[in-house]
């Protein structure tokens, strides 16, 4: 079963006067149960809009949005949700313990369940010493920690995290990944957007790319990585089109589909030292994929060239 399903979802914000700004255009999105889904997109691509629609913070969309197989709309479905908004803000005058109890009760927890739940998140996010501190005194990173604590507090089945690593130092980024992995072990589905693609690579098994309100593609991250070319390192007589590495060794790079033909075409006496799959950095893939669709965020040199051509024309 899918935890989240967007079917042909379109949404427009109201602009000035009668103008409408189309933020999502016929989006189809599927987040399978139990997976960790990385939702990628440039600024303004439609990630936060999709998440807000899912959380019921925006309304007036066309198409279907389903949570746990049911159309969103009934607020009771949100009992099973945990949400960390982008750059979260909280009430200044409540302390950590009060705030968690408040949000936990709203999610349907009983007073008896609160102490154990507090202890769990205090331990996971080192908030024990801060439990009596009011949130007005929290730094950005501390707010982010509290934000994740309140999202996982009631052990939700789906964790929706909008840029969860924003404002965190490397140590806390690593801890967040550990906590998210633990939540997944517990059985929760993770759905999060991030600009730090290395983090998505570390955590996710599914991905989706959205750009200008359109989902360009989605699927298993392993399939994407499987599309990476192979690199053959050999010694002795070299076939055509290889790169000399030194010490008589050479390197040939070719797609997976050519594997058998390339190996069969090796000259007599050539020795295969290593055959390995090249690593595709998700960041490179993402940048190339978006640039292939439109020119946003293109390299500075290319942008200057385009500007000059436009000036000449």
């Amino acid at each position: 079963m899918n935890t989240v399903e967007f079917t042909n979802v379109s949404f427009a914000y109201r602009g000035d006067w009668l103008q409408k700004i189309r933020a999502l255009k016929q989006v189809d999105l599927t987040v399978p149960a139990g997976c960790a889904y990385g939702f990628l997109g440039a600024n303004g691509a439609g990630k936060s809009t999709s998440i807000k629609l899912l959380m019921g913070l925006l309304h007036g969309h066309s198409g279907d949005i389903r949570l746990f197989g049911k159309l969103i709309g009934k607020v009771n479905l949100r009992t099973r949700l945990g949400f960390l908004p982008e750059q979260p803000y909280f009430y200044d005058n409540l302390d950590v313990g009060e705030y968690l109890a408040y949000l936990g009760r709203l999610s349907g927890m009983t007073p008896a369940e609160l102490p154990a739940a507090c202890d769990r998140v205090y331990q996971l996010l080192d908030l024990g010493d801060l439990r009596k501190r009011q949130l007005r005194s929290f730094s950005k990173g501390m707010r982010q920690r509290f934000g994740l604590a309140q999202a996982i507090f009631h052990k939700p089945d789906l964790l929706v995290l909008d840029e969860p690593f924003s404002g965190l130092d490397p140590l806390w980024r690593a801890r967040f990944k550990e906590v998210m992995a633990l939540e997944r072990q517990r059985g929760a589905t993770l759905f999060f957007s991030s600009h730090i693609l290395a983090d998505v690579e570390d955590l996710c098994d599914h991905y989706g790319v959205i750009d200008h309100g359109v989902v360009l593609e989605q699927g298993k991250l392993a399939d994407l990585m499987g599309q990476a070319p192979l690199a053959l390192i050999g010694s002795g007589p070299a076939p055509a089109e290889v790169t000399a590495v030194g010490d008589g060794t050479w390197r040939s790079v070719f797609p997976e589909a050519e594997r058998a033909a390339r190996l069969a075409a090796l000259p007599a006496g050539a020795q295969v030292l290593r055959l390995e799959r090249q690593r595709v950095a998700l960041e490179d893939y993402f940048v190339n994929r978006i640039r292939s669709v439109h020119g946003a965020g293109k390299r500075l040199a290319d942008a200057n060239e385009a500007n000059e051509e436009r000036a000449e024309a």
Partner: peptide, 14 residues
């Protein structure tokens, strides 16, 4: 403006 209601309205709250 401060988005403090996001964490409240994303729960089962009308």
């Amino acid at each position: 403006q401060n988005k403090t209601l996001y964490t409240v309205l994303s729960r089962p709250v009308e």
